[in-house]
Write a protein that binds this DNA or RNA. Sequence first.
DNA 1: ACATTAATTGATAATGGTTATCATTTACAG
DNA 2: CTGTAAATGATAACCATTATCAATTAATGT
Lengths: 171, 171
Amino acid sequence: MTMEIICINGVQFMLREYGKGHKWCHGQFKARGYRMTLGREAILDVLAQANRHLSAEDIFMKVYKVYPNIGLTSVYRTLDILVNIGLVHKFDFGHGRARYELAEEPKGRRHHHHLVCTGCSRVIDYEDFIDEEVALLKKTEEALSIKYNFTIMNHLIQFYGLCQICRNEGK
Amino acid sequence: MTMEIICINGVQFMLREYGKGHKWCHGQFKARGYRMTLGREAILDVLAQANRHLSAEDIFMKVYKVYPNIGLTSVYRTLDILVNIGLVHKFDFGHGRARYELAEEPKGRRHHHHLVCTGCSRVIDYEDFIDEEVALLKKTEEALSIKYNFTIMNHLIQFYGLCQICRNEGK
DNA sequence: ACATTAATTGATAATGGTTATCATTTACAG
DNA sequence: CTGTAAATGATAACCATTATCAATTAATGT
């Protein structure tokens, strides 16, 4: 893992390279006229280290531990920018709050889909696609792009049902 | 289309058979200890006649025209029951409000997936699956069921991107 | 380094979809 | 017809998200 020291507002930061790392994120921000701040840096850090889809409040609390000046509003604002840039995916499992996760998966995590339990709200990620599945998905996206003249940027695939525990409770 | 007259609270109602029709819905309600009321009847009617995913307020307004006694609260309550029974699917396109549609598709409509434009929030339904797609989806569901011991009841597949209009505006 | 300026911030209030409360009404079994 | 628990609608509460706005700050040019 490569490292680099940068300096924001007089404070030194280590830029770790998770996949397309922070350095790259900085570039993306800058290129679009956004400024890099301590808060945004910390939010990116939290997202990069998370291994689950976090809610805005989850992110706020994690950032707060490291940077207590953070405000919930800024978390929402930054997430909004990140989603628009395409760096972050925003999901909704129907539990009343949105969930966010880095589009470029750090730590070797890969793209995954979700199994959502309608009983206990648990969400299981699975990423063990069969090659056939990936190939067909790609083919489907291409066909849809052409047929509906629609540029596909991302997809969301969720299976709803009951996990083992909830199924047994239903007896 | 078969018809049948029933009587709720002294008022006559025609039970139309949309796919698994109202008669069947009544049975589902009763079997679970719920009562059939004018409001619920009207909500089912609206859902059966809708050809797009409606929000709770959409449904409220449509029902109101036919049954002005309806309250928004009851719409939410009934939808909640219908979702739990499995008669209605609840979607969230990330626009701040949930969308509902009958699981058993009336009027010959079939199961479909969504193209969601992140620019204008438009939602395009498509139901022209390739046979291959259906077959693989089924296979995937079976594999996931076994691997994660998870009973799959439903799935949600959405492709996010830009429609023609929004893509051109982005220039 | 320093000054300038517009982007960013956080505290606060407002918004809006959904849910809880509760007294009244109503479906329906006996 | 009656008893009773389910269902209702009006209202208030809830909670995630957004808008507002004065104060702060990152980045640019000097």
